[in-house]
């Protein structure tokens, strides 16, 4: 059984992980942070990631009418790296979001997604 801090340690053990964060989607708050890069305000980035997800949900809700949108994970690739977000439905508020930034060269996306799935099922069951 994993606590929130151990969960973050596990996420950072994914090959190529640069930094990771747990975000509470409802309040836009950084729940736990592991080594943010220099000059990054974790609170700001958590709030900004929340807005990104909200915008994605809104956009998808409008582009697939007649569906209830539920995002399981979201991948954004930039020229510097991959950004993976995994949403965990909890019984309380939420969703709780695991965010991890991966090195473009050293990471394996399929493996990272698989590991995130495994970690989230350990966190919630």
């Amino acid at each position: 059984m994993l606590g929130l801090d151990d969960c973050l340690t596990e996420v950072m053990a994914i090959p190529g992980a640069l930094d990771a964060m747990l975000v509470d989607q409802t309040s836009g708050m950084a729940v736990a942070i592991s080594g943010p890069p220099q000059g990054v305000d974790a609170e700001c980035s958590a709030a900004a990631l929340t807005e990104t997800l909200r915008a994605a949900t809104d956009g998808l809700a409008r582009s697939c009418p007649g569906e209830t949108v539920r995002i399981d994970d979201m991948l954004v690739t930039t020229d510097k790296g991959h950004h993976l977000l995994r949403l965990l439905e909890t019984v309380f508020e939420g969703p709780l979001v695991i965010y991890v930034r991966l090195d473009l060269e050293r990471s394996n996306l399929a493996l990272a997604r698989y590991r995130l799935q495994a970690i989230s099922s350990q966190l919630l069951t």
Binding site: L2, G3, V91, L123, T125
Partner: peptide, 8 residues
């Protein structure tokens, strides 16, 4: 679970 309780 521990994670859920902490989050709650």
């Amino acid at each position: 679970t521990l994670g859920e309780l902490q989050y709650c």
